[in-house]
Write a protein that binds this DNA or RNA. Structure first.
Lengths: 330, 330
DNA sequence: TTGAAAGCGCTAACAT
DNA sequence: ATGTTAGCGCTTTCAA
């Protein structure tokens, strides 16, 4: 491992001067050349660990998400990564699996690794986020609120639920069910709220209780929920899924039962980037996943830069780009 | 930031003793208690940066993959993560976007961050992998070979291509095209080789040259390739996609053209975890993505542990679990 | 502008 | 078994 001392020796200057060259501090042009030549020849690259110990910080940001296998979060992660990369930071990705213990574990790591900041989709209401904020490390919440007074970037979940449900009603479906995530997750909960509200308003009566299914937010959860809905004495003719993966499971079950959309109405809050259905077969309420990521990253960069204005909450809106085929056209 | 000295002072012992307690070295039970009490009270947690500078290594492994938005690589990543986590290591995920510069950049980081090792799907033939191996850091290649003599975990690509193609022929399709990735990527190239071999063997003649389409390995690549195939004077009646994302694009185009599988035969090398098609509509040759990850992780752990046997190459086989509906049954 | 030297927090000789 | 101390590679006062 070639160190700053060897470069200094070869260049005939002091280690401090080498350090200054690599940190853009004023050094005479002549010595800059000397140092550059020496370090090129030795293939020197600064030891980040040592620099971090000295500086008490690093150009690394942790991103904590529940599940790297969920395309929503991978798109979000790309957004975060692109924005931070451009600013010279690296991103460390961590799966929390929605497990508070794992979240705490990774927050500890971010702390003891002297990372510059953290962006997270929080599991626990407060977690050990305080450990970071107390040390002055900025933390930005994404997709879900915390109890703490920190920057956050959210989606307008009730509006998204309303948009999805309205599209199905507009298309002529009348018995609209809803597959929601675990009750503890506020994001899908807000979307289910939107569903209930619209159905009640536009049909004049609240939906059947059995039309609201809570499931785990993954594909198998959507499958189970859809199976339960189809087994009802009076099954629905359409369904709103409050997230992407559950919709995949629901559509799989429908296809297996011969009810390929749009014979059965399906609307999703979220994107199905790998869906293989014909266009307009289902309604997608697109979530600005990538944008969520870039927004959070930029807020974090501002905080890292020393910005100490009061905590902000940015709410991004979802957007419908495909709508269901009207019942009359089927 | 509470240090080992403060804990030592409070416990009435030396810093070295505190260090020993935290590293499981022999210390009298009495002092262990003292130290534990003191560190709990002060909420001490060891500074990993300092430890890393001192030890010249860390419990962190870098995983370099081309694209975190590809479900094949996220599944692989989960495999790596689960295996390494269980051994007390953390994983840093990096997107190379199949860009040699990014690969080099991340290898540099792994180097200067004193990471314990690297697992990568290599872009360049040798990259700057040597920088790591020269320092004794183990590197494991995954999914693609390097020119170097290092451990690697591969898939039997020709066999996978053969399996996919055979399934379509068995189902009664006769004009079978192939969508392959960029020529430079050996994995999809091997699969295309398998396709050509089987078609030639079983039909008695090599496939039409126009039936082999090279595309970028993503969804839009699959779309363009499928469109080109359908525009042929004599279009095929089935297609083999050499990876998952291109298959999604191909199926999208087919659905839009009213040729929903299995009316048009589709076989994929790779999994479509988010496919919404009825079962048996397409043939999937499942790739053991997660297993690839755990295997690579365990090999890396052995090397980190000091194992210095000659470099090994493990080849994992793909597995068909769904087969196309026979033409006669449609 | 440049150099000398201290110190970031930890661990491993070495000494006791 | 435990304490003392040097040093990992870097940055940054402080002096010159």
């Amino acid at each position: 491992m070639v160190t700053i001392y060897e470069v200094a020796a070869k260049a005939g200057v002091s280690p401090a001067t080498v350090s200054r060259v690599f940190n853009g501090m004023p050094v005479s042009a002549e010595k800059v050349d000397l140092v550059r030549a020496a370090s090129d020849e030795l293939r020197y690259s600064p030891n980040k660990t040592a620099r971090r110990l000295r500086n008490q910080t690093s150009e690394i940001v942790a991103l904590l998400i529940p599940d790297i296998e969920n395309p929503f979060f991978t798109a979000l992660a790309r957004g975060v990564e692109d924005a931070l990369q451009a600013a010279g930071y690296s991103v460390v990705l961590c799966n929390t699996d929605d497990d508070p213990d794992k979240e705490t574990h990774y927050l500890d790591i971010a702390n003891s690794e002297n990372m510059a900041g953290v962006i997270l989709a929080p599991v626990a209401e407060d977690g050990d986020i305080r450990r970071l904020t107390d040390r002055g490390r900025p933390v930005v919440a994404i997709d879900r609120q915390t109890g703490l007074n920190i920057d956050s970037v959210m989606v307008d979940n009730p509006a998204a639920g309303i948009a999805a449900t309205s599209a199905l009603l507009d298309a002529g479906y009348t018995k609209i069910a809803c597959i929601a995530g675990p009750v503890v997750l506020e994001d899908t909960e807000g979307r289910a709220l939107g569903w209930r509200k619209v159905v009640t308003q536009r049909t004049g009566a609240p939906p059947l209780e059995a039309y609201l299914q809570h499931a785990n937010y993954r594909v198998d959860g959507g499958r189970l929920a859809m199976q339960a809905l189809l087994a009802l004495p009076e099954p629905p003719d359409a369904v709103v899924s409050t997230n992407n993966l559950m919709a995949v499971g629901a559509i799989q079950v429908l296809s297996e039962a011969g009810l390929v959309p749009p014979d059965f109405g399906v609307a999703v809050v979220g994107d199905l980037p790998f869906a293989t259905l014909p266009p307009r077969a289902i309604t997608q309420v697109h979530l600005p996943a990538r944008h969520l990521g870039t927004t959070a990253a930029n807020m974090l960069l501002e905080r890292i830069g020393g910005d100490d204005q009061p905590a902000r909450t940015v709410v991004l809106r979802a957007q419908i780009t495909k709508s269901s085929t009207p019942v009359s056209a089927r």
